[in-house]
Design a protein around this nucleic acid. Sequence first.
RNA 1: GUGCGUUUAGCUCAACUGGAUAGAGCGUUUGGCUACGGACCAAAAGGCUGGGGGUUCAAGUCCUCUAACGCACGCCA
Length: 588
Amino acid sequence: MKKMITLMTEEISKAFEKAGYDPSYGRVTLSNRPDLCEYQCNGAMAGAKAYHKAPMVIAEEVAALLADSPVFKKAEAVRPGFLNLTVREDFLSGIMRQMEEEKCLGVEKAEKPKTIIIDYGGPNVAKPLHVGHLRSAIIGESLKRMGRYLGHQVIGDVHLGDWGLQMGLIITELRHRKGDLPYFDEAFTGEYPKEPPFTIADLEEIYPSASARSKEDEDYKNEALEATAQLQHGRRGYMALWHHIIDVSVSDLKKNYANLDVSFDLWKGESDAQPYIPDMVQRLKDEGFAYEDQGALVVDVAEENDTKEIPPCMILKSDGASLYTTTDLATIVERMKLYHPDEILYVVDKRQELHFIQVFRCARKTGLVPDGTALNFLGFGTMNGKDGKPFKTREGGVMRLENLIAEINEEMFKKIVENRSVRDTDAQDTAKVVGLSAIKYGDLSNQATKDYIFDIDRFTSFEGNTGPYILYTIVRIKSILSRYTEEGGHIGEGAILPPESESEKALMLALQAFAQNMEAAFEEKAPHRLCAYIYEVSNAFNSFYHETKILSQDEPSRRQSLIRLLVLTERVLTEAISVLGFSAPDHM
RNA sequence: GUGCGUUUAGCUCAACUGGAUAGAGCGUUUGGCUACGGACCAAAAGGCUGGGGGUUCAAGUCCUCUAACGCACGCCA
């Protein structure tokens, strides 16, 4: 269906044209003076210059042509040259009826669906997820869902850090601790054990201690570098160990991401790109892009109008080893080959921006990526504590994601039990659902690119612009609807009638904007736009609810209309939060 | 040092891409439960949008200078 804003724009544009002006001046926007009107058009002022006429004259001419419009109840020309617009109630209820019919509530599927790879998550194997991984997971997941909602084919890739020095460190530490395992015996030719020689808890302890030791002990570090090189050259025992590490680690990661309701289509990692490196490097050399500088192999990526010097993109270190950049480029090669994406989007900490500028330019310049494929970077800001500094535990250490989630859930559980008269057995589950909304909404309601303050007390509050408040609103609607059916009502009877109060009309106007906001949020890669929209709908509903009797409404057709409006409101809110990556319980 | 980013109400954040009187929430003050969930609603107070200059009918938004803070700047990822 066409969006209401589009229909309004068409209506105004026709009037502009009829009055002898360019129809493009007819663009309608939401009013920024809700006390004066619902929508506005500023085209008369923009056109004043082109036609050498007073804006007010143009506005009046157009307004006169809208006198008996089927869309506008009122279209008046005001002071400098604004067109103040008020929508007809029957037009609006017609829009509501159309929306009800559509599965996606008026969102139009993309005409040309794109294949989009979103690279988010980015955890390292053998290391627990910590709060630093939270934003990528939450933001990436919501962008993925938005893209799909709009009809695109979106592929989420977790892109594990599974190939660097960290792997050598773990292998080295294991060798020191359990050197008699067959993995370390180069003469061993038999089958390695199926069971890994460690648990996830072991790994989580092994890595930090290996990392710490390598910083003090030069020999140890060299040993780890050597182990890394041997692993990369495919030493049999090390490969077997590596597989164990991946298996143990990935199953743990999956569990943790599942708790966040985050899922990936691909569990690829840096290691998957390795097979593509030799050919890629050779090609860059052959085609004259790569040259040696101070022993390293680099590609220039500076451009003429750079405001600062962009260092060359390093392909191979002076010792011939590959590095971050190499892997990222090879990953692009792999993705082009396997998926032919129209876009690759990286949802990564914004501190990596320069790195990605280099990688993108290099990929573009050397033709690894064709012009038709967009390479985009969504850099998100740091999650800070109340003190404005990076979020830490009370002791000052890195906060594990599991612990953070547990803390939130506990807080939520307390509040739910406090506020409930009857103690349900499912309070724990409800706390999880509500807790997740607190975390996700808290994060997503802020602009992704900025740093933000993670304030548990504020996010878990039921008051204000929070996840729990949104869920409360949905639960409240569900509760009314279930009472309606319990009392013998049938949902779906009758039809939505024109609104009879200001608050009812305001709710309909808010609902109507669903498609528009969903599209804008995805287009701008800005989930916070969708959050703002949801909040607006919730507020509109709550004030409507407060002054409207629904179940006790005498007139049956009116009651049916109101019930249908509730159903539509619930659908809009439910769809929107599901795209953000969380859901509402039935009770709370 | 160079570049990028941030700076909006006491606090946490918006502002639909240049439009009218810069909006929300929290906190503060006040009012509202014999209707369907008061975990709600209604209202008040609170602002030189870091500072200066400019562009135009119109600037939080664009240009320029400047200050404070944050981040990044070839062999880590």
